[in-house]
């Protein structure tokens, strides 16, 4: 074998050895467990905190009378937290201050302001004309949105 090829082979061997050593120390422990990523990242994604709680296990155990009203109305398919926001703080420490209680007309308007793109089964009103001085909840019960 010519001497220059021999030297080249030695240089390659050194490079490859250095690469393998560096790789051994720099590669995270779980890298490649499932694919070209850190296997532990799956668990880390899984362990993030939950903020929107299970309604049946939490909200309804205390607010059963309101749940009953809602269940008999057209709003029955709507989760409590759609309007009241994430419930995790309120479940840990039930206070009036750590749950959303909206009164604004715009809030109801999210679903009920007139928009031709909305399905006709959703009752819609012209926000600029329909009793514009009043809050919606002064006439409608939001849990069963017929007139009080």
């Amino acid at each position: 074998m010519p001497v220059q090829v021999k030297r080249l082979l030695i240089a390659f061997a050194v490079f490859i050895a250095l690469f393998l050593v560096a790789r051994h120390f720099l590669r995270p422990a779980t890298f490649g467990e499932y694919g070209h990523y850190r296997g532990a990242a799956l668990k880390e994604n899984e362990d993030r905190p939950i903020k929107y709680v299970n309604m049946n296990e939490t909200c309804i155990t205390c607010h059963d009378s309101i749940a009953a009203v809602r269940d008999s109305s057209v709003h029955k398919s709507i989760n409590c937290q759609t309007c009241h926001g994430p419930g995790y703080k309120h479940v840990d420490d039930p206070q009036k201050t750590n749950i959303v209680k909206e009164h604004a007309r715009e809030f109801c308007g999210r679903c009920h302001s007139k928009n031709p793109a909305r399905a006709k089964v959703i009752k819609q009103i012209d926000m600029n004309e329909h009793n514009k001085e009043d809050e919606c909840i002064s006439c409608h019960n939001s849990h069963n949105p017929v007139l009080w």
Binding site: N45, I50, N79, Q81, P86, A119, I122
Partner: peptide, 23 residues
């Protein structure tokens, strides 16, 4: 979006699907 992976793995729906009023 993680499809709420932290919720999926605990048997709960993603937050966007849980709150959707029209399904």
């Amino acid at each position: 979006c993680t499809l709420c992976y932290h919720r999926l793995k605990k048997g709960m729906d993603p937050a966007c699907m849980m709150v959707c009023p029209t399904g």
